[in-house]
Amino acid sequence: MQIFVKTLTGKTITLEVEPSDTIENVKAKIQDKEGIPPDQQRLIFAGKQLEDGRTLSDYNIQKESTLHLVLR
């Protein structure tokens, strides 16, 4: 499924993921596309910060959901 990741600069990254993918996994995909190390990434969905060990389905993230990427 496709999800979108919006950065603070207003750029939107499109990722191909599975509901069973972990947040860690998603961060690795963002690193592949954008070169941002996962340890600098914070992903936010519905106002919650997403934890590395959880999966997209844990957070009920469905196709075409938009996550927000904050760098630390």
Results as ranks from 00 to 15, higher is better:
D21W: 04
D39G: 07
A28C: 02
A46M: 13
H68P: 01
Q49P: 14
T14W: 11
T9S: 14
I13D: 01
T14C: 02
F4K: 04
I30E: 00
L71A: 11
E16P: 15
E24Y: 08
F45D: 04
D39A: 12
T12Q: 09
A46E: 14
K6P: 01
P37Q: 15
V26I: 12
K11M: 13
K63C: 02
R42D: 15
I61A: 02
I36F: 13
L15S: 00
P19G: 11
K63H: 10
K48G: 13
L67R: 01
L67T: 05
Q2G: 05
T66A: 13
I44E: 15
T55W: 10
A46D: 15
E34L: 09
G10P: 15
K63P: 13
E24G: 13
F4P: 01
Q40N: 10
K63R: 07
I61K: 00
D52L: 07
K11W: 11
Q62F: 15
E51L: 03
S57L: 05
I3Q: 00
Q41E: 04
D58G: 04
T7K: 06
L71H: 08
V17H: 04
N60T: 11
D21P: 00
E34I: 05
K27G: 02
L67M: 08
P37E: 15
S65T: 06
F4I: 07
E16D: 06
I13C: 01
E16A: 08
L69D: 00
L56S: 01
Q31F: 08
D32K: 13
P19R: 10
Q31A: 11
A28R: 09
G35C: 03
T7D: 13
T9R: 06
S65E: 15
S20C: 02
V70K: 08
V17N: 02
T12N: 10
D39I: 05
Q31D: 04
I30A: 04
Q62E: 08
T9E: 12
L50F: 02
E24L: 08
L56D: 00
G53A: 08
L8N: 12
V17A: 13
G53L: 11
N25C: 02
Q49K: 06
T66L: 12
N25R: 07
K6S: 06
L43I: 06
V5H: 00
K27I: 15
L50N: 00
Q40S: 06
I3D: 00
G35Q: 15
K6F: 14
D39T: 08
N25M: 07
T66Q: 14
G35A: 14
K29P: 00
P37S: 11
T22K: 13
L69M: 12
T14D: 10
K33L: 10
D21L: 10
I3G: 00
T55R: 09
I23P: 09
L15Y: 04
I44G: 11
L67A: 03
S65P: 06
K27F: 13
E34W: 06
R54G: 13
T22C: 02
T22L: 15
Q41F: 04
V5C: 02
T12D: 15
K48Q: 11
E51A: 05
E34R: 01
K27D: 00
L71I: 05
I61S: 01
K6T: 13
K11H: 13
Q49S: 11
L50T: 04
D32A: 12
D32F: 10
K63Y: 12
T12V: 11
V17G: 15
D21M: 13
I36H: 04
R54P: 09
G35D: 04
N60M: 04
D21C: 02
A46C: 03
T55E: 06
E51M: 03
H68E: 13
Q40T: 06
F4A: 06
L50Q: 00
I3L: 13
V5D: 00
M1T: 11
R42M: 13
I36A: 07
Q2H: 09
Y59G: 01
K11T: 09
S20G: 15
D39E: 08
T14Y: 14
T14L: 10
Q49F: 07
D21S: 10
I13H: 14
A28D: 08
T9M: 07
H68D: 14
E64P: 03
F4Y: 04
V17W: 04
I44K: 03
L8A: 06
T7A: 15
T14R: 09
P37H: 10
G47F: 04
D39V: 04
D52G: 05
L8W: 07
D32M: 07
D52W: 05
Q41G: 10
I61M: 09
I44C: 03
I23Y: 04
P38A: 08
G10I: 06
Q31G: 08
E16N: 09
G47M: 08
A46W: 09
K63M: 07
Q62K: 07
F4S: 09
Q62H: 07
S65Q: 13
E34N: 02
E64C: 02
T7F: 14
H68S: 13
N60P: 07
K48M: 09
L8F: 08
V17Y: 06
N25K: 04
L15M: 12
T7V: 11
L50D: 00
R54D: 05
S20F: 08
F45G: 13
E16Y: 14
Q62G: 04
Q40P: 03
Q49R: 04
D58F: 04
L8M: 11
G47K: 07
D58R: 06
N60Q: 15
I30P: 00
F45A: 03
Q2N: 15
G47S: 10
G10M: 05
T12S: 10
V26F: 06
L71R: 07
T22A: 12
Q2L: 06
P19C: 02
E16M: 13
L50C: 02
F4Q: 06
Q31C: 02
D52V: 02
I3F: 01
F4V: 09
I13L: 12
G35T: 08
D39L: 05
K11R: 12
L50P: 01
M1D: 06
L71W: 13
Q31V: 15
L15K: 00
R42T: 14
I30R: 00
K29R: 08
I61R: 00
A28E: 05
P37L: 11
S20N: 13
V26T: 05
R54M: 09
Q41D: 02
E64M: 11
G35I: 07
